[in-house]
Nucleic acid binder design. Structure first.
Lengths: 339, 339
DNA sequence: TTGTATGCGTTATCAA
DNA sequence: TTGATAACGCATACAA
C-alpha cells in the first residue's frame, strides 16, 4: 500500500494525498476527509524510510552506549532511559539505542551515526571533561542533549543532577556525625559527574576545616570490583578513614564487602554511603545510605529538551534536579568513631 | 558527499561507483581501487536511508524492550545484548533497541517496526506461550531469532539456556541435601522460561517421589518485591518449606530478605537459590547460590543465527546452552532441615 | 567492463 | 485547491 496506490484509489494525485495526510492547509476539507478515511480503510502507512529520504528527518533520537558488561546495568540509568523513551513515543519519536565497542573509534561511530540520517538528535551520557563528542556535534550543528554538566554547557542542552550539592550534603552529614577522616571513592576522573561529586565533597570538608588526605581520594570504575581494591588500599593506610563515601551504590557495595573482609563492620565500625539508590541497595545488609533522585523527571526532561530543539516545542526547562539522602544502615555511627 | 559527486570526481558513472563500492565482480579491479581510494579521501559515506529505500535492507537488527523500570536491569541480559551487538558490528550490522510502553498495542508496535524498513530482522526476548509476536513475524515472513524456546520453534530461530535441565539439577542438589519440602517461586507463567524451569523442578521432584504441594509453586514478576510477598505466603503455611528455589537472582534476594524478616536465617535455617548469577549475588550476605551460563556465547549465537538468515552465512548453530550451578552460601544446609 | 535509465515512496516546488 | 514534476541518494536491470 503506497501513496501512489492510495492516490489512484481516490482518483487524486499523489501530492494532494500527501498534503492532506500531512495536515497542510491548502487542501479542501472535503478532500482531506476522503483521503483520511480511505487511508484508514486501506490501512495505509507511510513508509518511514521514504519519508526520511524525502524530508531529511527520521523521528528517531539516538543514544550510543558502550557494549560492555555494564552497558545498561545501573538501574537508575535504566529508569531514566525508560521515561525518556516514553515521552518521545508520545510525541511520535522513537528512542533508538545502539552500541559502541571498545575497538571502535568513538568519533567515527558518532560521525557515522549523525550523518546516516538514522537519527535527528542524540543523547550524550557520561559526559566527560571537554567532551570531544560535544565538540563534534557542535561543529556539525547536530541537535543533542547531555545527561551531565560542565561549565560552558548551554542551558537548553543538558539535564543533570546537582552532583556537587548532593555530595556536599552527604559529606556534611558525615561531618555532623563527627567523622573527621572521610574518604571518597570516586569514579573515573574525566567524567563530569565525578568532578562535580568531588567538588561537593571537598567543599564540605573545606568548610569544616577538615584536611583531605590525598590518599583518601581515589579514582576507579563505578564497579564493585574496583571499589574493593580501593577500599583495601584505604584500610591499609597507617591512619585509615572512619567513613567512605562512594560515587555510586555499586562502589558502596564493593566498599562494604571489602571492609567486612578486613574485619570491619559497616554501619558500626565504619560508615559507608553511595549514590543512585540502586535496586539492590535497600536490600543489602547493611542497607546502603544513598542519594536518590527523580529518574523519571530526568528522563522526561531530556526528551523535552531535544523536542524543543527539533520541533520548536516550548517545554519549560528544568536543568537541575536535586538528589536527597536516603538514610539507611550503612552509615549509622557510633561514638567510637570519634575516639 | 553523495555518490553522484564521487562519480563526477572520478569521471565515472554512479552505477560503476556503486558496484565498485559494493563489491560486485563485474568491475575492473583498477577501477575498483581508484573508487575505493577516492571514497576514502573524500570521506564518502553512503547514505543509509537512501540505501535502504533502494535496496530494501537496513543493516539493522531490532529488539523491542518494555519501557519500564526493569527494562535493561538484569545484568545477565545486559551482557547477552552487549555481545550480540559486538558480533553484529563486526559484520556491518547495528543492534538497535527501541522501547514499548504498556500503553501501546504490542502487535501494532511490532507491525510498524517491521514494515518501517528500519530493521532487517528482530530479536524476540521473553518469549511467551504461543507467542503472538512470533505468529506475526511468521505471517509476514520477517526474519527473527528468539531468546527462549517452546516446542515447535525452528532450530535455526532460537537460542536458549536449557532451563529445564538447569532447574532439574538445582532441585536435585536440594534433594540430595535431603530437603523434602522444596518450594519454587516462579516468574510469570506465560513466559517459556518460567514453564521450562518449572518442568525441571517438577521432574526432579517426581523422580525423587516428593510431593509438590500446590502452595509451594507460586508465580510473580521477576522482582525482589514480588518474591518478598510470595515468600511471606510460603512461610505462613502450616508446613512451610525448608528450601525456596527462585526463577532468578532478583527473586532470590527478595526471598532472603523476607525470610530474614521472619526470623529465618537463609543458608542455615532455610535454603535459597536463584538463577542468572546477577552482579550482586556474589556480594550478598549470604552470597546467593545460582545458575550461571555463558552470556557471551548466547549473545553471539543470537547474532549468528540472524546473520545466517539475512546473509546466507553458515555459522554453526548451537541452540542450547548449559547452565551450571555456582554454589554459594544461601543454600548450605544443616541437619536440622531433616527433622 | 561500463554507462543509461528506472525505480524505491515520499515530500516539496511550481504551474495551472 | 489541485496536479505534474523534480528531487532525496542509492541500487540494479539492461543496454552498450
Amino acid at each position: 500500500m503506497s501513496i501512489k496506490q492510495l492516490a489512484e484509489y481516490l482518483g487524486l494525485s499523489k501530492s494532494t494525498v500527501s498534503r492532506a495526510l500531512n495536515g497542510y492547509s491548502d487542501v479542501n476539507s472535503d478532500t482531506r476527509l476522503k483521503v483520511l478515511e480511505a487511508a484508514k480503510i486501506l490501512r495505509y502507512k507511510a513508509n518511514p524510510t521514504a519519508q526520511r529520504l524525502a524530508s531529511g528527518r527520521s523521528k528517531n533520537i539516538g543514544i550510543i552506549l558502550p557494549a560492555n558488561d555494564r552497558m545498561f546495568v545501573s538501574s537508575a540509568f535504566s529508569k531514566v532511559l525508560a521515561s525518556a523513551s516514553e515521552l518521545l513515543i508520545e510525541h511520535g519519536y522513537q528512542l533508538i539505542v545502539t552500541t559502541i565497542s571498545s575497538l571502535q573509534d568513538e568519533q567515527k561511530v558518532y560521525m557515522d551515526f549523525i550523518s546516516s540520517g538514522l537519527v535527528d538528535g542524540l543523547f550524550i551520557v557520561r559526559t566527560r571533561h571537554n567532551d570531544p563528542r560535544i565538540t563534534l556535534l557542535k561543529v556539525h550543528n547536530f541537535p543533542y542533549v547531555c545527561l551531565g554538566y560542565e561549565s560552558g554547557y548551554q542551558e537548553d542542552r543538558f539535564v543533570d543532577v546537582d552532583n556537587q550539592h548532593a555530595f556536599y550534603q552527604l559529606t556534611q552529614r558525615q561531618i555532623n556525625a563527627r567523622h573527621q577522616r572521610i574518604a571518597f571513592l570516586n569514579g573515573p576522573v574525566q567524567l563530569t559527574l565525578a568532578m562535580a561529586r568531588e567538588q561537593g565533597y571537598l567543599q564540605a570538608m573545606r568548610e569544616a576545616t577538615l584536611k583531605v588526605d590525598k590518599n583518601y581520594l581515589l579514582y576507579g570504575e563505578l564497579t564493585e570490583r574496583d571499589a574493593i581494591e580501593m577500599t583495601k588500599q584505604l584500610m591499609a593506610l597507617a591512619v585509615p578513614p572512619t567513613c567512605i563515601l562512594c560515587a555510586d551504590d555499586a562502589m558502596a557495595l564493593g566498599a562494604i564487602v571489602a571492609c567486612e573482609k578486613l574485619g570491619y563492620q559497616p554501619g558500626v565500625d565504619i560508615a559507608i554511603a553511595g549514590y543512585g539508590n540502586y535496586e539492590h541497595s535497600q536490600y543489602n545488609k547493611p542497607s546502603i545510605t544513598t542519594l536518590d533522585y527523580d529518574t523519571h523527571a530526568v528522563g522526561e526532561q531530556m526528551s523535552q529538551l531535544i523536542l524543543n530543539q527539533l520541533e520548536g516545542q516550548t517545554f519549560a526547562t528544568q536543568n537541575w534536579h536535586k538528589a536527597s539522602i536516603i538514610i539507611r544502615e550503612s552509615d549509622l555511627f557510633e561514638e567510637k568513631f570519634n575516639a
